[in-house]
Design a binder for these strands. Sequence first.
RNA 1: CGGGGCGUAGCAUAAUGGUAGUGUACUCGGUUUGGGACCGAGCGGCCCGAGUUCGAUUCUCGGCGCCCCGACCA
Length: 424
Amino acid sequence: MTHTIRQSVLFTKTRKDTPKDEVSKNAQLLIRAGYIHKEMAGVYSLLPLGLRTFNNVVQVIREEMDAIGGQEMIMTALQDPEVWKTSGRWEDTAVDIWFKTHLHSGEQYHEGAELGIANTHEEPLTRMLKDHISSYKDLPKFIYQFQTKFRNETRAKSGIMRTREFVMKDLYSFNTDEKSFREFYEKCAEAYLRIFNRIGIGEKTYRTFASGGSFSRFSDEFQTISDAGEDMIYINDTTGTALNKEVNTTEVIKDLGWEGVSLREERAIEVGNIFPLGTRFSDAIGLTYKNEEGEELPVVMGSYGIGPARAMGTVAEVLSDERGLVWPEEIAPFKYHLVVLDNGTEEVRKEAERLFREMESRSMSVLFDDRDVRVGEKFADSDLIGIPKRVIVSEKTLAAGEYELVTRATGATTYIREQELLDN
RNA sequence: CGGGGCGUAGCAUAAUGGUAGUGUACUCGGUUUGGGACCGAGCGGCCCGAGUUCGAUUCUCGGCGCCCCGACCA
C-alpha cells in the first residue's frame, strides 16, 4: 500500500446524503465516507479507503495468529461435493446456505458435475491434511487463511455485518489429543482478545460462553456490546466474561459456578467465534495419525473464525460519533489527515506541499486534502472519514510557526512544531 | 421463509390519469474563504412486464429489487 494519497485524486468522494436503503450506522457512514460500495443486498465492494482499513484489520489478525503458531495458506472457493457427502453436509437439508453450481459439459451450460461454492472449509481442509499427516510427529498443526465465503443467507442485514459474500479468517487446529487441543484453544482465545484490543473494541468485547451448534456442547464467542448486535448476552462483571442468552439455563449457570451472581444483560455483536470440533470431521473423513505405540487415532480438531469486515463494521458502530467515523490508529486508512486552508494564498499552499513531501519522504501515512474547497467542507469530510490525527496548515499556523494538530476522537486541539511531527 | 414498508436524475426527495418540481452532486461564469457560503446559467430522471384507458410515472395484477421485524444463522 502506498503511504500517501492526495485527496484531489482519491477515488471516491464523500456524500452528504444518507443512502435511503441503509439504516445501519456502519453502512451509512462507510458509504457516505467512501469506504464501501453496495453491489446488492448483502454484497459490498471495498473502495480504496475501505480496503486500506480492511487490510489493516487483516494484518492485526495475521500477526496474532502467526504469534501462536498459525501458518497462513489459502484454499479455493470452488469445492468438490464428494468430501461434503462423506461428512453428510452436502444436502441442502443439512446446510441450507449453500451456493452451488455445475461444470460446463457437453452442449449445455451447467449440465456437468455439481460444484460447491465455499461457505466454510472444514471438509476440504481435513481431506487435504490426510496427504500430510500420518504420525504424531506431524502434529500439532495450526492452519489459517483469509478466504471468501459465500453464504445464501435468508436475510442479509445490518450493512456489512451479515453479508452473503465475505472474507473470513478461519484457522483450524489439528492436535493429537484433547489436552494439547485445549492448550491451543486457550492460547487462541487470548490472541483473540489481543486482536480486539488492538482494533479498538477491547473494552467492550467479552469472551462469551455459547452453544456449540452441532459440533460440540459449547463454544466461545467474542461479543462486542452494541445496539447493532444480533445477540443478547449476560455479562458477569466479576469474571469479565459473558454467557449467550441461547444457553442461559439454570444447568449452564450451575456448570459455570455463576449461581447467585448478578448478570448484566447487553445486546452484542459476535465478532469472533472459536469452537472445538473434536473428531467430528477426522472420523468422517478419515484423518488419523499413528501414536508412539503405533495405534491409529483420529486427529482432534478446532475451528476459529473472525470476519475482518464485520470487525471493521463493529468498530464503525462502536467508535463513530454524530460527525462520522473514528478509527483507532492501528486500523485507520491513514494516520494523518493533512488539511491545507490556503484560501488562494500561494505561501500557505507551498508550505503545505513542502510539509507533505517531508512526511512522504519519511514514509508517514498521510491523506493530503489538497482540494480547492471551502474550509467547512474540508473539516466536515475530515470528520466523516475519521483519520485519527488532523494536521492543519493555514495562514494562522504559518504565522505561529507551528501546525495545528487535532485528535479526531476527542476533538482536542494542540500545536506542534514540524520537527516534532516528523519525528513521530 | 412469515409479516410490514418502499422503488421518480449520481445521491436525497415532491407532485401528478395528459411525460415531472426542488435540494445536492456535476459543467460554465462571477462574488466569497477557519465549519458543507452566495448569485446566475446549464446537463441529467418515473424498476420491468401485462392489463384498464384516447392516454399510465400515477390505477390493477404479476415479476424483480431494496429496507425493517420475526424465524434462521456450520
